[in-house]
Write a protein that binds this DNA or RNA. Structure first.
Lengths: 192, 192
DNA sequence: CAAGGATGATATCGACTCGAAACCAGTTTG
DNA sequence: CAAACTGGTTTCGAGTCGATATCATCCTTG
């Protein structure tokens, strides 16, 4: 039994490795590099608190300087634009442009999705669950800040119904914001 | 149903992405870079026909020049060594050293394995199968040479029993060789 | 056997990426 | 108001990678 399980673990690790390598080449489509693709994906899914160079750096696990460079590259290609914030004049918002959304629709990782959608439906569910718990197990190991959506955030303060607020900033959260990635995400404490 | 399946595909793609990012940092352990780790892993699992710079380049999907540089870096760290071949004096064998095997035992991707082994056994099997067919679907898309083991190779010529030969080179294959990766691997033709 | 082409490997060069550190401007704290 | 802090950018050096050129060896063909 232990042996059987070990065999599978090994196979799983290898498969993930190979999937990673197989998709690696895809990540250079459209003259972008992997970091730039990840940035576009991130910006499309991050809420308004999180579309900044620093948050991006956290997400990518890199430095502010590097994130800034990546953003600059994407800006020069016309895929994002920098918007100076008024409240804090140091701060900058990174926003996808029209062109940015267009190119994101051609995201090469979409191939992965179409490959996944070819699986039998119930199988896909199992696969997703398996990967999910694999990731959970992994995250405790290597550092890497947790990024989650407001819906599952410990800061969320569901005052009344229909309207929810972020307990940290006090802002009301549009439903659109609640399903997006937030830098400030904290896992809900176990006993809550 | 279609919607349900689409949800899972999206989730699967995202999870794979995040697993990739989570393991990315691990790949720099021990002063090596991802390509160097992959090289060590490959050399440990490749048969004697396949432990050469050119085969390595094929496997990694890179150029011979780059593969040569990677090998040189690993050699200078003492993890592999170049052995001049006698039969063909142009050719070189890349062999793991004692130290190379030692460092490979600390392979950071082992974390992935331990995370996978934490899954319920039957679950692990399903996960492996799912990933496997995902990879199959993917491989038809992006190029990438197929690498397989002699056991499932179209060149394998099981003359008599116990002893098998490679139909390409005519060499007898030790059982150890038969379970290793080979550059010359060809999928068995469908009707065989 | 000689000539020409193919093949395995390496060296060199330039483009590019990334991280570290210095730096600037704006904000908060005391 | 000064000091400390924070968000962001710039600069610089190390390192990687791919393309190209080169060298040695092998193979094929006449």
């Amino acid at each position: 039994m232990a042996v059987l399980n070990e065999m599978h673990s090994e196979r799983i690790a290898e498969l993930l490795d190979r999937i990673g390598r197989a998709t690696h080449c895809l990540q250079f489509a459209d003259g972008l590099n992997p970091a730039q693709w990840e940035t576009l994906r991130y910006l499309a899914r991050a809420n308004r608190y999180s579309r900044t160079p620093t948050a991006l750096a956290d997400y990518l696990g890199t430095t502010k300087g590097t994130a800034s460079q990546t953003a600059r590259a994407l800006e020069s290609k016309g895929y994002i634009q920098r918007v100076k914030r008024t409240c804090d004049k140091r701060s900058v918002w990174l926003e996808l442009t029209e062109t940015g959304h267009t190119v994101l629709a051609r995201d090469p990782m979409g191939r992965l999705e179409t490959a996944a959608s070819a699986l039998p439906p119930d199988f896909g569910e199992l696969l997703a669950d398996g990967l999910s718990s694999l990731l959970r197990g992994l995250k405790s190991d290597c550092g890497g800040r947790e990024f989650g959506v407001c819906e599952q955030c410990g800061h969320l303060d569901p005052s009344g119904d229909g309207e929810a607020r972020c307990g940290l900033t006090g802002d009301a959260l549009a439903s659109e914001d609640r399903t997006r990635i937030c830098v400030e995400f904290r896992a809900v404490p176990p006993g809550a």
